[in-house]
Design a protein around this nucleic acid. Sequence first.
DNA 1: TGATAATGAGACTATGCAGTGTCATTTAAG
DNA 2: CTTAAATGACACTGCATAGTCTCATTATCA
Lengths: 199, 199
Amino acid sequence: MESQVPDVRKRGRPTAAERQAREAQILGIALGVFLRSGFDNSTIDELAAAAKVTKRTLYAYFGDKAGLFAAMVTDLATGVSLDAASDHGTLTALAANIVYRVHSDELVGLHRLVIAEAGRFPELALILHSRGDARHMARLAEHIRAEAGPARAALAEPLFSLLLGEAHRRRLLGLAPAPTRPEARAYAAGAIALLGLSG
Amino acid sequence: MESQVPDVRKRGRPTAAERQAREAQILGIALGVFLRSGFDNSTIDELAAAAKVTKRTLYAYFGDKAGLFAAMVTDLATGVSLDAASDHGTLTALAANIVYRVHSDELVGLHRLVIAEAGRFPELALILHSRGDARHMARLAEHIRAEAGPARAALAEPLFSLLLGEAHRRRLLGLAPAPTRPEARAYAAGAIALLGLSG
DNA sequence: TGATAATGAGACTATGCAGTGTCATTTAAG
DNA sequence: CTTAAATGACACTGCATAGTCTCATTATCA
């Protein structure tokens, strides 16, 4: 799975751009490792090997294991909020998109990690929530305001809860696979209808 | 916190009843330890000390650390379903009760533990879900059938999702304290009204 | 009353792993 | 061209901890 990582193992001083790129690549790979094994069961050696980097470099970049983990979560949470910038279309389309993303293996895994380590890294929990759930609800509120009037904007939160729903709890527990696009669409439409937001 | 544990440290062969009682007591104490520190960060020595028992006894009872953890979750999940047997009153009362329990420190912590270890102990996730969420939804469905007709029994699942809602996600992330009884009641009433199940 | 199951106490082993130190090597920067 | 930053390679230390072993002791059960 890590075999397609370009082995740019090099010596000598890298340029600023190279260094930044390398850091980003390490974070991406660390995500994969942490998702597979969790924080405690991922070893520094494992992380270094997967990223094709030596331990020394990891420590130089991130200080320690916790630092690497924090950097990874922060980076990913930021990315999550960014890529959600595709903000056109109907409420239903937006909702379907949110369902699809929030139930994805990647985001469910990230949630699992942060929930598991919420005691050790409380600030990461806050970051994840504010850049994830809170953002999604804000965008839902905007769309509801536009399509159904400002009076109903308060329905954004319950709608979001329905978009996650029982299915998301099962996802967190590892009891169900990620939904397909059509399934996500249907799920979203059902939730919207239930709250009388269809028309 | 563990100081009120009766120090029944004894030698010699216990009666069958004593042994069973001791086992139950160990499981209860193990829950507390695991909730505080998580699975990986709880040590066998810590668990043994808290339960006022030697390591030997723990290994004799549960085989290994994972066995102790599994026994604890199973035991607690069973207890959860049992104590929910107070099954009278209105739908609103039932819902308020569910909200209160599901958002409690104990159950939230248990969920956190099982979510964190879902990879290592998938069967525990299933146990927790079937004896927790699934049971709650079934009881909601019964009450809805009785109060609003069988046609609306399908609303049990979305209702349950609303009863957890954003608040529960914040609980899992450690971002909010457990609700008080009145807060739970208000929360439940709001969800029920939203789905038009009030009258 | 004897045989033995069960436990306490705690030393002991084995292992895994975070984090550091050393040295050589390469290359960006000035 | 010179200097020093950055990295690879990897040995090494130190610690935490899961699980085992030994021995003495007590109480149950037949």
